[in-house]
Structure formats: C-alpha cells, structure tokens
Design a protein around this nucleic acid. Sequence first.
DNA 1: TTAATTTGACCGAG
DNA 2: CTCGGTCAAATTAA
Length: 354
Amino acid sequence: MENMGDWGKNKNLVMNELTQGKELAKQLQIHLKMPSSSHETREMLIQMILTSYEKALSMLNCKSNSEVEQHHVAGIAIRSSESPPSLTGSPRSDDSDRDFKDQEHKDVSKKRKTLPRWTQRVRVNPGTGLEDPLDDGFSWRKYGQKCILGAKYPRGYYRCTHRNVQSCWATKQVQRSDEDPMIFEVTYSGSHTCRQAPLKILPSNQEPNRTSIGPQQPLQIMQQPPPDQLLNFQSSLKVITEGLDTCELSFPYHFASTSNAMPPENNVNQPSINDTDFMGSISPSFISPSTSGTNYFSMSPSGINSFQGIQNFNDRSELAEITTSASNSPTVALDFPFANDPNFTFDNYPGFFS
DNA sequence: TTAATTTGACCGAG
DNA sequence: CTCGGTCAAATTAA
C-alpha cells in the first residue's frame, strides 16, 4: 500500500503497454483475415505484441508478486480450512458444518467470478459411436445436469476429480448444441491446480479408449514450458481470442509471461492459480489423447512439436474437431472476469496473473 | 468395497 | 418469481 505511488505510475505504463498490445492484436486479426497479408507482416505484428506484453509483464513482475500471492494465500486458507470435512466426500449434516458450508458458498461464488472462463466447441464425428467426446485429458467428475431453458439438450456440470484432495477448482459445463447435435459446447472455468499425473507419452498402439478417462492419467503440460515454446504456443492460441466480443485481453499475453514471471517456488501443491495451471487447463483441449482432432487454430508447427503429445494429437484426427474457429462467429466466447471491467487491474484478479 | 453418476432438492442471482 | 449452478442421497459401475 505504501508503494501505491510507485505502483500507480507503473500501472499506467502497464496499461499503456497492454493497450498497445491489444491494438496490435486487432491488427493481427485483420491481417489474418487478409489473404494478401504477408507472413512477414504477421510475424512482425506478433513480435510487437510480444514485446508489448513482455514489457508490461516485466513491469508487473517488479511490483506485484507479493501482493498477488497474498490474495492467493488468503483465498486458499479459507478453502483449506473447510475442505477437510469433505475429504472423503462424506456428507456433512451438522449445523456447524452448515456454517462452514455457507461460508464456503460465499467464498466459492466470490471465487467463481474471478475464475477465467472460456468456451470451446467440440465437434464429434458421427460414426465413432462417441456420445460424449469430452475427454480432454483431465479427469472430470459429473456433479450435475440441468435442462436449460431454450436448449434442446441438458447441460452437464463437471468438476475436477481432485477437487477435494487437491483443492482443484476447475469446472466445466458441457452443452450439446441444438442446431448441430454433433457439436458440444464446453465451457471451462477455473484452472487446474491439481497435480495431474505427468503426461505419459502413450505407446503407438495406444487405442482411443476415450469413453472413459478413468484412472488414466490426465495429461498435463509440463510444469514449466520453456519460454520460446510458450511463445510459439502463444501464437497458436491467438485465434481463440478472436472470438471475444468485449474482451480482447486474453491467453496469449498470459502465456508469454509465464516462464520468466514465475517464481520458481511456485509449485503445484501450493494451490495458487498460476500461469502454468492456466496452461494446463486449456491445453488439453488441444492435445487431448482421445478427443483429438482437426483443429482450426493456427498452430505453428514448431509450436506443435514443442509439446509432447501434440504430435500424437496431430496424427489422430478422426474423433473430434475442436471448432474454436473464430473470426466472425464468436464460437469461442472468452469470458474473462475483467472483460467488461474498465477499471481492471491485475491486482483484482489474482488468479490470473500471478 | 470404493468411486462415479444420476437426479431431485436447494440456493443465490436477477 | 424463474433460472442456472451446486449439493448430496441414492444408485450404478468398477
């Protein structure tokens, strides 16, 4: 707080950089739609965007770590104090538990607002007998299903299997599309803070038994992807952001920062939502071992090759396609908490930048 | 047996 | 009030 003056100035600079980055991203978007646009131009725009965000991030990095982390710790502390009763999933019924529960409710709903959300459309090819294409590499546990007004199909609610054990608050909703039942809209929210079993490179004869994730190891992108790989990946993710209507600030920026912005002591056990986790939570959609498919991201080959498992993903395109195409149709609605917040500061969203 | 799913009840937001 | 999201007991699967 005493540093507010410093930080205030810094914030302006950061905002400037981010704004600039945003503009550049817009331009890039335009260029991407223009067949006449040259590769060099695009590359240059990307570079400029990167530079912008790296600057911004280094500014943030100077200042914000401690504060942000405190937010995390506070959030987690509350949670961990209430999770023990439910460790085994056993029902809670006392009045005292009730209090806890209420508290939890408030906390969770508060939390929920700060969780990043994004939607993907996943297409399932008919003929695979695949009803539910949604093995995205993480283990999810269904906790509800609801009929949604105006929707033909019910919406399924899933949370991370490791929620109780590892306080992993990632959730997703799966909604089958009315128009095209082969399309599922998957809305992810929150990041996986759980320690998923490390990505196992499956043997070549590995068969798409994707109906059940089961005890299988979900794949988790490596904890600390090298920076340049992140950058590549970043550019590949760019397309997602085009689905934004109100919000332009999104993943890629985030990714670019991660590797150098992350303090090494930030391990997964300490349930802070951090870049890496965020990575982990979206990446499976790209590299899912089971619902892999044609995708419409502009994956740069180098980026692809940087990630174990993505090659695998590349090879098998028969199951599903991730139709996160964007441009005009906002198939991917990135719904970030700060999307509509003109007063957005990173401090307000500790889970996002760490 | 444990773990996951189903499904009606419950709750908060609007 | 309605609606969407979550809880949790009952049920099913492994």
